[in-house]
């Protein structure tokens, strides 16, 4: 069988897997951003225990493999009463630990993106704002964050691209993502190489589209930047 026939015969598997991959990546990015915002706030906090905790969190997450984190979350949180439900072929029992682990991972990177985005804003801007009598909060909201966001959003877009690829570890917990379905087709066809080519192309297409979106966004950001 050549690649085309494999795809024609088994495209349903690939597409179903792709859907899972996209859905999980989307959820993870949203949760990761929310959690990342909180971690970055802790990280930038003047209250030492908060900032130290955030630093430790970021160090641990960035210093250990994603797969190890996934298993630790899966086994550590096995007491959680995950709903025994299946949505779009995804067993929540298995997807939810994945979403938690990936979100926790993404949060660490997002937090660093936000922190470096804020710190990239010239410190004179904060000094000038405070000198006008603004509170720290006002200065952040009115002066610093509007400038930082231009550094932050494109980098978050790239984090999204990374997450789409990272979701491929979902299959280790038996979640029917693109890689998991890929392996089903491998078993059925005995043509691993072609199957992996097909999956690679699908990931590539997803990320090219995403990358285009991100760079269009960047152009628009640049336009408003004077």
């Amino acid at each position: 069988m050549n690649m085309m026939t494999i795809f024609m015969n088994y495209y349903k598997y690939f597409l179903r897997g792709t859907r899972t991959t996209i859905v999980v990546a989307l959820i993870v990015v949203v949760l990761g951003c929310c959690l990342g915002c909180i971690i970055s706030l802790l990280r930038l906090s003047k209250f030492k225990p908060f900032s130290e905790f955030a630093k430790l969190y970021i160090t641990i997450i960035r210093g250990t493999p994603m797969l190890v984190q996934l298993y630790i979350v899966y086994f550590q949180l096995d007491f959680l009463p995950y709903p025994k439900m299946t949505i779009w072929g995804m067993a929540l029992e298995r997807v939810m630990p994945c979403v938690i682990a990936l979100s926790m991972n993404s949060a660490a990177y997002v937090a660093e993106i936000i922190r470096s985005g804020i710190q990239a804003v010239d410190s004179g801007q904060m000094e000038a704002a405070r000198s006008c009598g603004m509170t720290y909060g006002q200065a952040m909201k009115l002066i610093i964050l509007p400038q930082a966001i231009k550094n932050i959003l494109p980098a978050i877009g790239n984090e999204f691209v990374t997450m789409v690829k990272e979701t491929s570890i979902l299959m280790y917990l038996g979640v029917a993502d693109l890689m998991y379905n890929n392996n089903l087709v491998v078993t059925a066809t005995y043509s691993p190489l072609y199957c992996y080519y097909i999956s690679a192309i699908i990931y590539l297409i997803l990320n090219i589209i995403l990358g285009k979106g991100v760079s269009m966004f960047e152009v628009r950001m640049k336009k408003s930047d004077r």
């Binding site: 010239d122 004179g124 801007q125 000094e127 000038a128 000198s131 006008c132 009598g133």
Partner: peptide
């Protein structure tokens, strides 16, 4: 700080 105006070497106008 409302009562004390400050002007910096680097101007520090709000860029946004």
């Amino acid at each position: 700080r409302e009562k004390v105006g400050m002007v910096f070497q680097q101007f520090n106008l709000f860029n946004n």
